[in-house]
């Protein structure tokens, strides 16, 4: 998986390419720890070229959402394909994470 980070003002966008699965979710978790160490930011996950997400990936997103809630910033997911959206719907994540 490839992660591209872009920061503009107090919003950081992470574009993910490939698969957010058991192996690669650690990579995202590490990236997020670095971002959170830098202070309170709004997070945007660009999933336009993400192929699929597994429960390990969902776990990382849930932790990020909890952190964002505690910091009182915002987080959203944009561009998710049908397969990824389906996983959010099945697991009820559509109700706890903002998905555009």
């Amino acid at each position: 998986m490839k992660i591209t980070r872009n920061t503009s003002g107090n919003t950081t966008t992470l574009a993910l390419q490939g698969r957010l699965d058991t192996v690669t979710s650690t990579q995202l978790a590490n990236e997020l720890s670095v971002i959170f160490e830098g202070g309170a930011v709004n997070l945007v996950f660009d999933f336009s070229v993400l192929e699929y997400i597994s429960s390990a990936g969902l776990r990382v997103l849930l932790i990020a959402q909890k952190k964002v809630n505690a910091l009182e910033t915002e987080m959203k997911i944009i561009g998710a394909n049908e397969a990824v959206k389906e996983i959010f719907d099945i697991t009820g994540f559509s109700g706890i994470i903002k998905i555009n």
């Binding site: 429960s55 969902l58 849930l62 909890k66 809630n69 996983i87 099945i90 697991t91 009820g92 706890i96």
Partner: peptide
């Protein structure tokens, strides 16, 4: 899967999927 974020637990989510 209807629990709100504070009560949300991750165990069992993989096999549920």
């Amino acid at each position: 899967i209807n629990a709100d974020i504070a009560e949300r637990e991750m165990g069992g989510l993989g096999i549920f999927l």
